[in-house]
C-alpha cells in the first residue's frame, strides 16, 4: 500500500527562487489497484514519484510505502518497490542477464535464488534469445523487457511507473501497459504517472489529476466524469486544471 499525506517538495533555484515541485499532495493506493497520476509535463508527477521512491526527500508531509516511512526508512522502502521510468536506463556494456543479476544482488538476493528468479523472469518475458546480449545491442522492446525484469527481480510489493511508455513505439508501449495490468493481477500496489489520457482510461482504477504541483482532483474515472459533467477524460482533465476551476 502507498499512503501520501501532504507531500510537499520545495526546490530552491538561484534564478527562479522557490519552486513548489509538489504541494500538499495526499492520496492512497490499495494493493491490487492501479492509481494513475495524470498531469501535463512539469505538473509534479515525477517529483511526487521520486519522493515515494526515496530519490528525493520531502520538504514536508509524509508518505508510507508498504508500511515504511520514505523519510526515515528509505533503504527499506526501496527494497519494497520496483521503479520504472523513461529516465531509468540500462548499463550499455552489461548483458541483460548481468543487469538483472546486479540489481538482484543490490537487493540482497543470494546467487542460487537469483539464478532461479532470472530463469522465471526470462521465461515470463520471453527474454531467452537476448539474455546474454549486451544492452547496447538490444532493440527498444528488448531494453524495455530488461528494464521490467530489473524492476521485478526482487518481487516487490509496490510498482512505481513514471511515464514508462514515453518515446516508445506502439507495440512496445502496449507490452508495457499489459505488464502493468499483470502487476495489478498479481496483487501489487501500482502507481502510474502519465500525460496520455487513453493510457489512464485503459489502466487506472483511480486517477489523481496533478497540476502546478497540487493534486486538483481525485477519484475513479466515473467519479471524475460525474463531477465535471464530461464523458471524455481529456475534457475532464482540461476542466479540472483550467484557471479558476474549483479544486
Amino acid at each position: 500500500m502507498i499512503e501520501a499525506r501532504n507531500l510537499t517538495k520545495i526546490f530552491r533555484d538561484s534564478k527562479r527562487g522557490e519552486i513548489r515541485g509538489a504541494d500538499q499532495v495526499s492520496f492512497r493506493v490499495e494493493p491490487g489497484t492501479i492509481y494513475g497520476l495524470l498531469g501535463a509535463n512539469g505538473a509534479g508527477k515525477t517529483t511526487t514519484l521520486r519522493m515515494l521512491g526515496t530519490l528525493l526527500r520531502p520538504t514536508s508531509g509524509s508518505a508510507k510505502v508498504a508500511g515504511f516511512d520514505v523519510a526515515s526508512e528509505p533503504d527499506r522502502v526501496r527494497a519494497q518497490i520496483g521503479f520504472l521510468a523513461a529516465s531509468t536506463a540500462l548499463y550499455a556494456r552489461l548483458t541483460a542477464r548481468e543487469m538483472i543479476a546486479y540489481f538482484g544482488r543490490l537487493n540482497g538476493m543470494d546467487e542460487r535464488g537469483l539464478r532461479a528468479r532470472i530463469g522465471v523472469l526470462s521465461e515470463e518475458l520471453d527474454m531467452g534469445a537476448f539474455l546474454d546480449r549486451r544492452c547496447e545491442k538490444l532493440s527498444t522492446g528488448m531494453k524495455q523487457k530488461t528494464s521490467i525484469a530489473r524492476t521485478l527481480v526482487h518481487d516487490p510489493q509496490v510498482m512505481i511507473f513514471d511515464e514508462p511508455t514515453l518515446g516508445l513505439d506502439v507495440m512496445t508501449a502496449r507490452a508495457i501497459v499489459q505488464f502493468v495490468r499483470e502487476c495489478r493481477g498479481r496483487g501489487k500496489t501500482v502507481i502510474y504517472s502519465t500525460h496520455v489520457m487513453s493510457e489512464a482510461e485503459k489502466l487506472c482504477d483511480r486517477v489523481g489529476i496533478i497540476h502546478e504541483g497540487a493534486l486538483k482532483a481525485e477519484g475513479t474515472l466515473a467519479e471524475l466524469r460525474e463531477r465535471t459533467g464530461e464523458a471524455d477524460l481529456e475534457e475532464c482533465f482540461v476542466k479540472i486544471v483550467a484557471p479558476g476551476a474549483r479544486p
Binding site: G53, L55, D75, R78, A79, I81, T88, A89, L106, N107
Partner: peptide, 14 residues
C-alpha cells in the same frame, strides 16, 4: 548523463 544513476538509486543499496 546516460540515466543509469537514477536506475541505481532506485535500488535499496545505501
Amino acid at each position: 548523463e546516460r540515466g543509469t544513476m537514477e536506475t541505481l538509486l532506485c535500488s535499496p543499496a545505501a
